[in-house]
Design a protein around this nucleic acid. Structure first.
Length: 694
DNA sequence: GTTGACTGCCC
DNA sequence: ATTCTGC
DNA sequence: GCAGAATGGGCAGTCAAC
């Protein structure tokens, strides 16, 4: 199935300018329907191969994400290429990045200024752009950076400024058009729903609809706006001077059509969720129509998109949302793993996929062994969280431990010894040839036991397979108790799961059948921090012209220095962004003037005098190689940082920088973060709060 | 051979 | 991961 | 409520530069 586009025939001739103009129009529009119309127009009347390439380009990809093919080019390399093409000095380009806030737009501007000489260039085709992207993804080894750079430069050289904008964005995989996978699927569902032509003819042939003929004639364009405005006008027949019975007949035809589009959209979405490659689906649709897409089924060794959960901040709300009853499961802090297993003639084949569906089998041979030993059926897809454990105490280790295994290629054997893991299973999506994604939660959970007989909720480092701890609750107090126990046992929180008959596995979507509930969603359980702004970073995209993130520090009240704990870029609304810009522009200054008592390893765009205090909340304190809070005090060579930091919306104008959270306070939060919980718990008669951070 | 910038992918 | 926004 | 786009900490790998 691995093919190389260049080798396919026929050669396509879609000018890249057409793509660029389409993208430009999409960006300038507001309203998803209008954007969809542009896409529809762009995608229509293409061969299957052309369509596939156009879809991939629009997604900013060469191959589906799960194949793990990397272009390996991002902003820094683009800056170099841009320099090669325009001879505008790198530091000038860098300066522009800060004011323009979008590497694509910046490229366009610089090209406009500097490119009078490219009259002899060859017009770009989408094929050529795509072909170069593929080459970029393929090259590696010595001088590969140079080659990639040359390929970007080559495209830029032949591109008009507008085309350059999008080449750069495609290369960096940041299209920011306001459309992405779901809107492309929308467009495809319009394009491949049959019946537009017939509806058009029907409307044209009826009597009394003459006023609508110009629109009805356009139906085969498959534009959303044509369909919607026809329907709107037919719904007010009197005003339009149309016979009511004619109108309702016509309306019924269009309702019908709209219904089919909706149904087809759902079918394509379903296909996408169980075969997450839109380029492939587009090709298939173009070649064989909807029926081919409908026949796509859940298949071992094709990873499904993971189901995600919504969030709520109280157990009571969760139980209410789920109709009075919910299953609560521990939410383990590790790597999400989708395991595909099948017995074959020459043994049991097993592959592991990450949440983004990358193949991570090679990094976890121990997990593969656990699965092989425990598996009692013929084929299955199961899902779980791979968590690092301390085998002596059977307690969980911090997330940072397992990060050391993810993606590792070297010294695997030692690494496996250093970071033992177990796989905590929580779902079963496929068993012995049967697709279970449409079965309710409790059925799927039972199937885990069927696949792995004797699997238990207790951690068994030898066996390596664990069933996620679960309890069905119908009152908040019971749920709270379970939640606190989860925290005590070293988990992030709980995942509530609907136990209704409708509780299917919603691959790829974030619905209300699963609801996340974490400690830091609850203010009583997570302390907020009052941090001092010491630096700022220019924003990009919709944050251009304001600061995208701030560098935040604590006070070391012994030395009077400010030490950094995190950057902060989440939790700001538009007003906050504007206010913060003013604050910073007031306090900013030259490094040597304003950073006399600031100790930071991190470079910033703008140095800020430690003055303003903002309230920040995060999930937990971790060791940090980048931040200077408590540097060398808790661990040699490391400081402390805040995981998942965000602004609470509260400006602590009542506090000066000397009243900010101190380094010592952060240290004590770090030491206490696992114990505080157990003090709030009733006795359990088991081991006391396990301080799982060694 | 070692280091550091850059990139991509985990959360 | 979390959060905000436009529709 | 959905889809999209801002942003966080931190890890490993790759490659260029030393």
């Amino acid at each position: 199935m691995l093919f190389i586009i260049n080798e396919r025939l026929p050669v396509m001739v879609v000018p890249f300018l057409e793509a660029a103009l389409t993208y430009q129009r999409i960006e300038s529009l507001s309203g998803k329907l209008l954007m969809t119309d542009e896409l529809i127009r762009f995608f229509s009347k293409r061969t299957p191969d052309e369509l596939e390439v156009l879809v991939r380009l629009t997604m900013g990809e060469v191959r589906p994400g799960y194949e793990g093919i990397e272009i390996g080019v991002a902003e820094k390399l683009v800056v170099k290429a841009l320099y090669q093409v325009t001879m505008v000095p790198v530091d000038e380009i860098e300066k522009g990045r800060k004011t323009v806030g979008d590497i694509g737009l910046l490229t366009e501007e610089i090209m406009k200024r500097k490119m009078q000489m490219s009259l002899f260039s060859e017009p770009l085709t989408t094929e050529r752009v795509f072909g170069n992207l593929e080459k970029m993804a393929r090259v590696e080894g010595r001088s590969s950076q140079d080659l990639k750079l040359k390929m970007v430069a080559e495209l830029l050289h032949d591109a008009s400024p507008l085309e350059a904008r999008y080449i750069v964005r495609i290369v960096c995989q940041k299209m920011r058009l306001g459309i992405a996978d779901m809107t492309i699927i929308d467009a495809l569902s319009y394009l491949f729903t049959p019946g537009f032509e017939k509806a058009s003819l029907d409307l044209m042939s009826g009597s009394g609809l003459e006023k609508l003929h110009p629109l009805a004639e356009r139906l085969p364009e498959r534009s959303t706006s044509v369909l919607y405005s026809l329907m709107e006008r037919l719904s007010i027949p009197k005003k339009e001077g149309i016979p009511p019975d004619e109108a309702s007949r016509a309306l019924a035809i269009l309702e019908d059509l709209k219904g089919s589009i909706q149904k087809n959209r759902e079918k394509i979405v379903r296909a996408y969720n169980i075969h997450p490659d839109i380029g492939y689906l587009a090709h298939l649709l173009s070649l064989s129509g909807m029926s081919a897409v409908e026949s796509i089924m859940v298949t071992p060794f094709i990873p499904l998109r993971a189901m995600l959960g919504e969030r709520l901040s109280s157990i009571g709300d969760i139980i209410e949302k789920m109709g009075g009853k919910a299953a609560l499961e521990y939410k383990y802090d590790g790597l999400r793993v989708q395991a595909h297993i099948a017995r074959e003639k020459d043994g049991t084949k097993i592959r592991l996929y990450s949440r983004q569906l990358e193949d991570i089998t090679e990094q976890f041979p121990d997990v593969v062994e656990f699965l092989r030993n425990g598996f009692q059926c013929s084929s299955a897809i199961v899902e779980g969280e791979c968590v690092p454990i301390d085998p002596d105490s059977s307690s969980f280790m911090p997330f940072q431990m397992i990060s050391r295994r993810r993606g590792r290629k070297h010294d695997l054997a030692e690494n496996i010894d250093q970071v033992p893991v177990v796989l905590v299973l929580f779902d079963c999506l496929f068993l012995d040839g049967r697709d279970l994604t449409t079965e309710p939660y409790l059925t799927r959970r039972d199937s885990i036991g069927e696949a792995f007989g004797g699997i238990k909720e207790e951690i068994d480092p030898e066996k390596g397979l664990v069933l996620s701890k679960m309890e069905i609750v119908d009152e908040a107090s019971k749920g709270e108790e379970f939640f606190l126990r989860a925290l005590e046992d070293g988990c992030e929180g709980v995942m509530a799961k609907s136990v209704s008959d409708q509780s299917v596995y919603q691959a790829g979507s974030r619905g209300w059948l699963w609801i996340k509930y974490k400690r830091d969603y609850r203010s009583e359980l997570s302390d907020t921090l009052d941090l001092v702004v010491v630096g700022a970073f220019h924003g990009s995209g919709r944050r251009k012209g304001t600061y995208g993130a701030l560098l935040m520090a604590v006070l070391d009240d012994v030395s009077g220095e400010f030490h950094t704990l995190c950057k902060l870029g989440s939790g700001f609304n538009d007003e906050d962004l504007a206010v913060i810009k003013e604050i910073i522009d007031e306090e900013r200054g030259e490094r040597e003037n304003v950073w006399k008592n600031v100790f930071s390893k991190m470079e910033v765009d703008v140095h800020v005098k430690p003055e303003k205090v903002l309230e920040v909340v995060g999930a937990e304190i971790t060791f940090s190689p980048n931040h200077t809070c408590s540097f060398n005090r808790m661990r040699e060579g490391y400081g402390l940082a805040l995981r998942f930091p965000r602004f609470t919306g509260r400006y602590r104008d009542d506090k000066g920088p000397l009243e900010a959270t101190t380094e010592r306070e952060v240290e004590s939060l770090y030491s206490l973060q696992n114990r505080v919980i157990s003090e709030k718990l009733p006795e359990r008669g088991e081991e006391p709060g396990n301080d799982h951070h060694q």
